[in-house]
Design a protein around this nucleic acid. Structure first.
Lengths: 144, 144
DNA sequence: CAGAAATAGTTGATGTTGGCAACTATCCGC
DNA sequence: GCGGATAGTTGCCAACATCAACTATTTCTG
């Protein structure tokens, strides 16, 4: 039964343009949005973990953070225990933007918003079951 | 009730690395995969419609198609009614690859595959309701 | 019908992201 | 301490993304 995945995939593709659009509203790239999303306030994230979370090579992160840092949204700090690592924290400005960003992202797109309340509840319940269970193979990252 | 969209978004993000990985298996870029997916066999698609489907500027398509054509997966033909447009068709080679590609893509990822058959059925039903209804605002594209 | 306006696709410039290999600085185990 | 692993950076190059300008064609309008 691959049907439900195919439907999900269709939904995904139909909403594919959403992220770049939202990112552009905040003058960010999609990758930068993803980074900000992963940088939960009050926590510090080493760059390597970010690379895992984004599923891309560590060398890309450097440039992405460079640009975010240049805009004063993020800060690099030396790791305490290990001076090789550099941990990231959101600045006050970054946090403010992040908050607006996340609230914008969480607006459900039309196909979902249109569902009946009952369907929405059922969908939430199913997705929670899909996501909550620990994976058998350790996932690429478990942020935070 | 934005919760179910947030869950869906989490699932989406968790599977974000899937497409680039699959694309790489076929020596394609994610964008090229998307293009091949939109080129249903037996139909011809003008390049402009592809730009809509990908949600990007028309000028990008030129290069993407250039590379696909160079590999003999796709062919440009002059439009019949309007000689400005160039329509695309998959070649025999492209069709063969497309078939393998789509079957690979349709393998459900772990979180979905793990759902109980009942949940899968319920999910399919809900998603069908979400997708089937015609949109109130004309969508960016209506492929085919 | 002729000329203006619109449209499809391409090209060129520029910036961001993607991977890979090489490099530096630091840590860990023996 | 010395050798091997590890975190991040840098350089190189390919792919995509946008935008503006250009060509060829169509379509609208006077």
């Amino acid at each position: 039964m691959t049907e439900c995945w195919e439907l999900l995939f269709d939904l995904l593709m139909a909403e594919r343009a959403r992220m770049p659009t939202i990112a552009a509203e905040f003058d960010l790239s999609p990758t930068q949005v993803h980074v900000l999303r992963l940088l939960e306030p009050g926590t510090t994230v080493p760059m390597g973990r970010l690379a895992c979370g984004l599923g891309c090579d560590a060398s890309n992160i450097t440039g992405v953070i460079d640009r975010l840092e240049a805009r004063g949204l993020v800060e690099r700090r030396a790791g305490e225990r290990d001076r090789r690592v550099k941990v990231l924290v959101v600045t006050a400005r970054g946090l403010e933007l992040r908050t607006r960003l996340l609230s914008r992202i969480s607006e459900p797109p039309e196909p979902i918003a249109r569902l009946s309340p009952a369907d929405q509840r059922a969908l939430s319940a199913i997705l929670r079951r899909a996501l909550d269970q620990p994976s058998s193979t350790p996932r690429t990252s478990r942020i935070s």
